[in-house]
Design a protein around this nucleic acid. Structure first.
Lengths: 335, 335
DNA sequence: CTGAAAGCGCTTACAG
DNA sequence: CTGAAAGCGCTTACAG
């Protein structure tokens, strides 16, 4: 790589100090009352030499990098991919660059990413925290590192967050299934103490109770790292017992894996089994019949997260909690 | 944010110079023959003060950031999402962080991203270049900026690249469709001069020719920013004329959009229309019947790109071209 | 074995 | 209106 040209090179060529160059190139020529011809000359020479500012140097000096770190569970999951895209665009709009890492729902990976991003002096972090990973998050909060938790959060830690109204999401979906005549409704959830999961389960449970179906409440749990086999087993059971009339999936991934199993067993939806999925996916459209689902406002979630974070970076002390409304998209799979 | 502790703080507390601290914390204590107790003390104090290195300062001094910039067409497209994930993992493995941007197949966005990443002193770039965007790429190459083009490249510019054998991909898919008795085969492609598109078209054309079907060659083109309506129109025509027996899709996105239209028209696949998709997607599994497709070795593509780039960053001058083999996954949609 | 010092490329108070 | 200089937090040749 050819030697990069610095402000010094420009300063030398024009015959002024680097201070002037800095002022002019940062648009402070008026504020600092730099003379017109000097300013013009500096601009001209900068262009001639094809000057590119070194933001690393600037960052070191200013103590801010205009970079935000984004930690999601898995960037290859379209839910997070779409979220990342929104975040990238909004951040760019506001002059920030984003560096991305995938935690695989694993706390030690999350910590490694947080450390690495902090070493790189990100101005703030947007994180979908992993299970049992509250300590490092608390640490960030206590050190006043600008932070927004997204999708999930820890009620015991005071941080900004933007999440779905998870309780409302499954409550309304369960209600909908009941209205369609289902009573033996099960929710398929991750085996996780994370807040969003617990709230989704609670929404289901409370809706069942409210409809006098407390006895039918049953939560089928799936481990994050063996979704396929666990779901397979659940659907097998279901297929053998024929005691269940409806299934409510509590994430995107669970829905899709479940749909594979349901299709393989040739279960008739919704007659033999009614279903409601989560998040939305092209597969929901192609499944026979099209799958009803709980839709998250991804765009809003991404944009809000970025804005909230940048507010915090700008020094706003107030902690903000944003809870977004889900939308139940009813199609034929739910009866 | 509490004031960060620096090497100076450690040096002061231990009573040595920052040079020693730097040596010890970078594991050069042996090479620089630092005495045992000093080394131990430094480690101890570093831990006590919870010292975190400032990589920005290090980067400024060393002139390298251990960061790579990745520019894809759209991170929310699962094809790129999966690629990004592989790249992230491989980069992390090798001690690099990745910053990501989406170009939307738009040259000026690409340029903006390149500039921003370069200002941030990335050590190198992995890019899926946009149409007509050869000039900025040539610029990078001429300035010896470590660079790997991925998925597509410009034959006229000498750069590293890792791509699919696009010609072989569509050649074999077309051959397969012909072997299944189809003659009126059309390819659906983007209206793009980009190399990968041209090669996919060429593979189709040559396979047709080789089978005496030169007269049947017809390429249906779709604009990137109006895929849905353009494809809708193509399928409409097809539906009215009933003159086409098979469709070969040349990307992931095109396949999925096409499948929506085909389904809406209730075309019987493969009897009324045989199809072969590209890249693979869950939708291909749920479509009735399951869709045959050309599979790209994503894992390999991502890993190779990172390794190639890091070799180049490490000073390797040799230009490398890697061409990966596609795999035709035959299912029921192709006859 | 260790320290003093320069320097990476910026920004910014300070002085004139 | 402009310049000399300090300093962000590191690394590293140099000298002893």
């Amino acid at each position: 790589m050819a030697k990069r040209v610095s402000m010094k090179d420009i300063a030398n060529k024009v015959g002024v100090s680097t201070a002037l160059v800095s002022y002019v190139l940062n648009g402070l020529e008026k504020e600092k009352r730099v003379s017109r011809d000097v300013a013009e000359k500096i601009h001209k020479v900068a262009k001639e030499l094809n000057y590119k500012p070194n933001r690393i140097a600037r960052s070191l000096r200013k103590g801010s990098t205009h970079t935000i770190g984004l930690i999601v569970a898995d960037i290859s999951n379209p839910f997070f991919g779409q979220l990342a895209r929104v975040i990238e665009d909004e951040a760019a709009e506001l002059g920030f660059t984003v560096i991305i890492g995938s935690s695989d729902e694993n706390c030690s990976k999350s910590v490694a990413l947080i450390d690495s991003f902090l070493d790189r002096q990100v101005d703030g972090l947007i994180i979908t925290p992993s299970e049992g990973c509250s300590k490092p998050i608390r640490n960030l909060a206590e050190n006043n590192i600008p932070l927004v938790l997204m999708d999930r959060y820890f009620p015991s830690i005071s941080t900004n967050h933007v999440i779905l109204d998870n309780y409302a999401a499954t409550y309304s979906a369960t209600n909908h299934l009941i209205a369609k005549g289902n009573t033996k409704i099960r929710i398929i959830a991750y085996k996780s103490t994370l807040n969003h999961m617990q709230e989704r389960i609670r929404g289901y449970r409370e809706a069942m109770k409210a409809n006098g179906l407390a006895k039918e409440v049953a939560i089928r749990k799936v481990r994050y790292h063996s979704v396929k086999s666990d779901i397979e087993k659940i659907i097998d059971d279901l297929f053998n017992e024929k005691k269940i009339s409806a299934l409510l999936f509590s994430t995107n991934n669970l829905s899709i894996s479940g749909l594979y199993s349901i299709r393989n067993h040739r279960l008739k939806v919704p007659d033999e089994l009614a279903i409601v999925g989560f998040d939305g996916h092209e597969v929901f459209d192609f499944f026979q019949p099209p799958v009803s689902f709980i839709k998250q406002p991804l765009e809003e979630m991404g944009i809000e997260s970025v804005r909230m974070l940048i507010n915090s970076i700008s020094g706003k002390k107030e902690i903000v909690h944003k809870v977004l409304k889900p939308q139940l998209v009813v199609r034929q799979s739910s009866g």
